[in-house]
């Protein structure tokens, strides 16, 4: 058992007014302090290469994506957001996705697809905004997922640097 000793209020405190005056002074000072509000759409949150936004497919310099539709990301995805239909191609990699959909409403931005990808084809971008008028519009297909390499370069470098930490020295690029 704890006995809480309440302090006797002084006369000035029991009169209310001096304390009210102090409180009013406090809130008046607060009016001139720096604002903490962020004017969101005009002033977006700062992002950097550590930001794990929505996954995007990297478009290589030859205009193609690196995906060979192996399905590793599809399996790794804990939210079942990714759907891939593989197909053949005349390019050297022989296989490419005929369909690569990510349901952005299911995606939880965990980054497992990025980790799973053996071809460095999918990376987490810094894009976080997601709004549309229908659910269907938020199921992104290949065309909506493509991003030029330059837009994702910082993230690619960052992820590779992280991965270097547990790669064997011999396999380090």
């Amino acid at each position: 058992m704890v006995i809480v000793k309440r302090r006797e209020l002084t006369l000035a405190e029991r009169l209310y007014l001096p304390e009210i005056g102090r409180a009013l002074a406090l809130s008046l000072r607060a009016m001139f302090r720096k604002r903490v509000t962020r004017q969101y759409p005009e002033e977006p949150l700062p992002t950097n290469e550590v930001t794990r936004g929505q996954p995007r497919l990297v478009v290589k310099d030859d205009g193609n994506i690196a995906c060979v539709s192996c399905g590793m990301c599809e399996v790794a995805c804990p939210a079942y957001a990714i759907t891939i239909d593989g197909g053949e191609t005349d390019r050297a990699i022989e296989r490419e996705p005929k369909r690569f959909d990510i349901d952005m409403l299911r995606c939880i931005l965990c980054g497992f697809c990025e980790e799973a990808c053996p071809k460095d084809a999918i990376y987490m971008s810094d894009e976080l905004e997601l709004a549309d008028f229908s659910r269907q519009a938020l199921v992104y297909d290949i065309e909506k997922l493509k991003r030029p390499r330059s837009a994702l370069q910082k993230r690619i470098d960052y992820v590779n640097k992280l991965n270097d930490r547990w790669r064997k020295p011999s396999s380090t690029r």
Binding site: S27, A30, M31, R33, K34, R35, V36, T37, Q39
Partner: peptide
């Protein structure tokens, strides 16, 4: 407005 100002808001 005043409530916002007193709470460091806009």
């Amino acid at each position: 407005k005043v409530s916002a100002w007193m709470q460091y808001r806009i």
